[in-house]
Amino acid sequence: MAPTNRVLTAEHLTRFFGRGDTRTTAFRDLDVAVPRGEWTTVLGPAGSGKTALFECLTGLALPSEGSVFIHDGKHSRRRALELSSLSDNARTRLRRSRIGALPSECDLMPSLTLRENLLLGTRLARHRVDRAAFREQCADYGLGAHLRKSPDSVPADVRLRARLLRTLLTEPDVLLLDEPTAALEAGQTADLLQLLRELVTAHHTVVVCTSDDRMAEQGDHVLMLPGGLPAGVDRPHPGSPGDSRVPRMPALKGVPPVTAPPRPAQTEPDPVAAELLPVPASRLQVTTPGEEPSRC
């Protein structure tokens, strides 16, 4: 995979907590490549290290060993930026501009209205927002009637859509979400899946860390963490023949890859800005026996 086709890469990544006899390893010697303009799902049960990986990829925490790089797709000759070489403030600025991070816990300010929360990120990033476009985006995300409300007074799915739009307003290179469906009902999860697929159709890069198999069914790539099924699994792009494979995600070292079963060709929906279009159902089923979806 060419450097310009990658947004994030991780090399020999290890994260552990504690010392001596109490030390716990979240993951060890992990290599990851996130393709630009596609949907990558990091799938695993509770305790498999999904949140720890999310924190390393977003710069919220530094790995115990290894490196995470963000690549510039607009300037192929520009050197990749290593997150661990940056100060805390520099990584914070990076999350305001190039890395969109949505942790599992709601991070909206309860003392502000939804509208004020939406515009807070752009002000901190000194990013200009067109007012007419902003009103249209709020309507597209179903937020128009909630803009003057506090985050605590709206349903969980409205809060999630507000957080998602707040992040997208700064036009990040990649959007990463940690357990986004944990507080959603079944119908709300279906709406989120459609929204994320629409974003990828519009050439956004999406990474979802989750224990929810439905995320894997809709994504383009699946990276399994230990404790789930063994391997990195790729699906064909929507609209491509079932035997035409996209570049494979690096498998976890020492674990054989699993190949996704073929599926019939499907027509990819046209990108739209105002409507959430239905997304063709995936034929790939990724499950872990006895696993129950839970918070990371």
Rank of each mutant, 00 (worst) to 15 (best):
M1H: 10
T4S: 08
R6K: 15
L13R: 13
T14G: 04
R15G: 06
F16K: 13
R19C: 04
G20I: 02
G20Q: 03
G20Y: 02
D21G: 14
T22M: 13
T25E: 02
D29F: 13
D31H: 14
T40G: 02
T40I: 05
L43P: 03
A46T: 13
A46W: 11
T51S: 03
A52I: 08
A52T: 07
C56N: 02
L57G: 03
H71T: 02
K74N: 12
R77G: 05
R79A: 13
A80R: 15
R91S: 00
R91I: 02
R93S: 10
R95Y: 04
R96A: 05
R96C: 11
G100H: 08
L108P: 00
L118A: 04
G121F: 14
L124M: 10
L124H: 07
V129P: 01
A133K: 15
C138R: 11
Y141K: 02
H146V: 09
H146L: 11
L147Y: 08
R148F: 06
A156G: 07
R161D: 02
L164K: 09
L169R: 09
V174L: 04
L176S: 05
D178V: 03
E179A: 10
E185R: 15
Q188C: 07
A190Y: 07
Q194L: 08
L196P: 01
E198F: 08
L199D: 00
L199Y: 05
V200C: 01
C209T: 06
C209N: 10
S211H: 13
S211T: 03
D213Y: 14
A216P: 00
Q218S: 10
V222T: 04
L223N: 07
G228V: 00
G239N: 03
G242M: 05
R245E: 09
R248Y: 08
P250V: 08
L252Q: 14
V255W: 11
P256H: 14
P257Y: 01
V258F: 10
P264F: 05
P271K: 04
A273N: 14
E275M: 07
L276T: 11
P280V: 00
L284D: 00
T288Q: 06
T288L: 08
G290M: 01
E292A: 12
S294K: 10
